[in-house]
Simulated assay, not measured.
Amino acid sequence: MAGVINYIKESFGELKNNVTWPTMAEGQSLTVLVAVFSIVFSLAIWGVDTVFSKVVGIYFKFING
């Protein structure tokens, strides 16, 4: 049990002293970047899904006559 407590203490020390945290402005700009990328990526997936759905519909309509 003492090993676990020591590990947790060392982990917090590592996070506090050795990790370089971004500034608030950097954090906000990166958050906006991730949000914009997520929206663009989701729209691209929606577009591919829509096109694929239409192609499959046309294919089955062609097969069934």
Rank of each mutant, 00 (worst) to 15 (best):
Y7T: 14
V36S: 04
I5A: 09
W21H: 10
V34P: 05
F37A: 13
W21A: 01
I45W: 08
A35F: 15
I5P: 01
V51C: 09
E10N: 13
S29Q: 06
V40G: 00
I45Q: 06
A2L: 05
M1K: 10
S29L: 08
P22A: 09
A2G: 07
S11Y: 04
V48C: 00
E26V: 08
G27V: 01
V36H: 06
N6M: 01
M24P: 00
G3L: 08
K54D: 03
F12Y: 14
S53N: 15
W21C: 10
M1F: 04
W46M: 10
I5S: 09
F41Y: 13
A25I: 02
G13W: 09
G47T: 02
M1H: 14
F41G: 04
S42H: 04
W21E: 08
S53I: 12
G13Y: 05
T23V: 07
L15T: 03
T23F: 05
A2V: 04
F52T: 12
V4C: 05
T31E: 13
V32A: 11
T20L: 09
V56Y: 09
I45N: 08
A2S: 11
V55E: 09
I39D: 00
L33R: 14
G47Y: 04
V32S: 12
L33W: 06
A2C: 01
F52G: 03
T23N: 14
V19L: 14
W46N: 08
F41R: 09
P22D: 07
M24N: 11
S42W: 09
V19P: 03
Q28D: 06
T31F: 15
L30H: 12
D49R: 10
P22M: 03
W21R: 03
V40T: 08
I8Q: 06
L30P: 00
L30N: 10
V51P: 11
F60D: 15
Y59T: 11
P22W: 02
G27I: 00
Q28V: 06
M24A: 12
W21Y: 15
I5N: 06
W46F: 12
L15W: 01
L33M: 09
K54W: 02
N6A: 09
Y59W: 14
I63T: 13
F60T: 02
I8P: 06
W21D: 05
T50E: 02
E10R: 02
A25Q: 10
W21T: 09
I8V: 04
I63C: 07
I58R: 08
S38Q: 12
K9R: 11
V40I: 07
V34K: 07
I5G: 05
T20A: 05
N64W: 05
L15R: 01
V55R: 10
S11M: 13
I5Q: 02
V4W: 02
L30A: 07
G47F: 00
N6P: 01
A35G: 12
F52L: 15
A44D: 11
L33T: 03
E10C: 05
S38A: 07
N18I: 07
G65H: 01
I39A: 09
L30V: 03
G27A: 08
